[in-house]
Amino acid sequence: MKFLSTIWQFLNRSFFRLGSPREFYKISNYVTPVFGLLFLVLTLIGSYNALFVAPADYQQGDSYRILFVHVPSAWLSLFIYIVMASAAAIGLIWRMKMAYIVAICSAPIGATFTAIALATGSLWGAPIWGTWWEWDARLTSELILLFIYFGVMALYYAFEERTTAERAMAVLAVVGIVIVPIIHYSVEWWSSLHQGATVFREGGPAMPPSMLKPLLYNALGFTFFYGYILFLRARNMVLDNERKSKWVQELVNKEHNKEAH
């Protein structure tokens, strides 16, 4: 019990430490390059295996290999939304500055991954299904996700005053979370042209380890890419939002002096 309470206290403390923009900036100095490095290493291993080691599919031949970009992007589009909505909820409840920054910085990254998932899916559908686009449940709900991301960004930048913008954006982000289960279960609840789940399904993944491994490497690599870009964007936003505070001005002066010498 003592052990658990120590862990809980540690998590609690680090949660509120990260909640301070200044502490976040300090920590991000170390975390950001680590994320970038992990992204490079994992994605290189994953992509090499995806292109040269994984066998061709019996039905789709080599064209199935677009899956190694399509599937991680689609997973990330949902994962980033969950992170964004959770951060938005934390911001609404605890009025935490950093939570809002994480939420708004996640939106364009999530929108990009959604767009990549839609575009690669379209490129894949053309030769295999015989069509670029069909209004089935999975494709349509993923397109709605893209529009929700756009809505979150548009709402944030539509307000002059930051606190109003943050709250409005956060409410939309929280409400929009209902699309996530709909996208995930769309291929189960309704009939669709899109295939059912290959990896997260009852009875284990319906693909051999030689295909599954590069897919998971890429998925993890893409996740670290998200972390890397999120931290870069959040650092910029912290400096901009806190530009009047003493610690940022000291930082700027220090950099300025460095350049002068």
Partner: peptide, 16 residues
């Protein structure tokens, strides 16, 4: 219009 629908199974050529 006739479209092909592929399922969730991915199988290497050897096991086809």
């Amino acid at each position: 219009q006739v479209l092909a629908k592929h399922d969730e199974n991915y199988v290497p050529n050897e096991a086809a």
